[in-house]
Design a protein around this nucleic acid. Structure first.
Lengths: 243, 243
DNA sequence: CGGAGTTTTGAAGGACGTCAACATCTGTGG
DNA sequence: CCACAGATGTTGACGTCCTTCAAAACTCCG
């Protein structure tokens, strides 16, 4: 990955951002250059927090490389994971666009490079180039839809289906083909999978163990690989076991 | 309510929309007039659907009077309620702003008056007056935060606390002072309260019966009134019973 | 090799859903 | 005005999915 170097040229960065970045969808070249010229580059080590739940919305981020975990903590210390964010995705949009405190905490789960815009600069940009504001709204709309779907799942589906759905989403977002199947491309402890699906690590462990015996998933410590994607879909959608 | 008449003047409507409508926050008078001149007025009877989950995003709405229920249905027919929307709130923003199908279904639970903008007109407006786009983003941000909070609740809180939280939100949104307490100002069957909190009408019934015995809530068929708001907060926040 | 973090597995218990029956209210038509 | 049907709400008994509690095995890293 080109961003892994601290000394890449602006040109290299521009090239990689020109396509596949939802935030810049449909944005003219000149606007893209202007936007990037207003950004700060920033590096975050594994375990570092980018922002904290309840903190003032100071900046808005685009992930160049690495991965963030967005989570919420209850007053009692319970954690849940709202979502993971990877390269080309944005972070902090709810707070910065809405002018409210960050609703969740963002932690780097691996070394992460970001572009950072202050709130003022973001406002300036989205005023000058409406396409950026439109794109941000599209992104928020998509995330909102996903949240609604998860809310429904949590209401209506048993644990097993929720875990299957969560893995399905992770495959789309961070799946990497390997010889025998598709692997989730970052360390994913059972504990985190539990916090994504509203259950306990015990139940996740038991469920994965059963699936492993059935040849649906594999993997080791903090690793999950899907060996039989169709089998997983069958569980997620509660279909009868096709012979 | 002034809107209850089908024959109100444009001036009357303008006056009522000038303040307290989040969508028009900080909008200059001229923009407000322009926006309203582009809108269609529309009336919906109780039980009618405004839009359907999965439908193409045709229009964007501002509620003048009445109330909508936003819900999702699973393929198996299970229902959940995402939220209620009342006067001065907007509907359809996720779909229209994001250019995606409506993620949920909107049903009028009482006779409802709306302003309606087509997708094209909304795009035109938010391009011309960035303040409208900003306001829409603020609103979406707020709703997203609320969804995240509910997701966390559903993961971490027992049923009783979730019902208490749901009632708390309804009080803020649609509470009406009465002699003895605060009443939720629209018909709210146990069934709906269950679909808001991810439980069954049986559990809701049992819980409300217990609270009624403790003097915390009251009400009858499709009616809920909060008699002891502090008691409800105590349950929602899991505080020790203050003497 | 030791220690911390992660995962597995078993057993017990409980919160809440499911099933079932009944009560209550509302509106409709005779 | 009453009877009836249908929707809504109440309540009890029972079962179960999943959490909680507990302990041990495994893995990684210094």
């Amino acid at each position: 990955m080109v961003f892994m170097s601290d000394v890449i040229s602006r040109n290299e960065m521009l090239t990689s951002l020109r396509t596949g970045v939802p935030l810049f969808e449909g944005l003219p070249e000149e606007a893209l250059q202007h936007a990037i010229s207003l950004a700060q580059r920033r590096r975050l080590e594994q375990g570092e927090l980018l922002f904290r739940q309840g903190g003032a919305p100071e900046a808005f981020f685009l992930i160049l490389a690495g991965r963030l975990k967005i989570g919420q903590t209850t007053p009692e210390g319970q954690q849940i994971i709202i979502r993971y964010l990877g390269p080309r995705e944005i972070a902090g949009c709810v707070a910065v666009c809405g002018g409210m405190p960050y609703p969740a905490t963002a932690e780097a789960i691996e070394t992460t490079w970001l572009l950072e815009w202050t709130r003022a600069r973001m406002a300036e940009l989205s005023g000058r180039y409406p396409a950026i504001a439109m794109a941000a709204m599209r992104i928020m709309g998509g995330r909102m839809t996903e949240l609604q779907d998860r809310l429904r799942e949590l209401h209506t589906d048993p644990v097993e289906r929720r875990i299957a759905h969560a893995l399905g989403r992770l495959v789309v977002q961070a799946g990497r083909r390997t010889g025998s199947g598709i692997e989730i491309d970052f360390p994913l402890p059972r504990r985190d999978l539990a916090e994504m699906t509203g259950t306990t690590l015990h139940t996740v462990s038991r469920t994965l163990a059963r699936w492993e015996a059935e040849g649906i998933v594999g993997g080791g410590r903090q690793r999950v690989a899907i060996l039989d994607p169709l089998g997983l879909v069958r569980i997620a959608e509660d279909l009868p076991a096709a012979s």
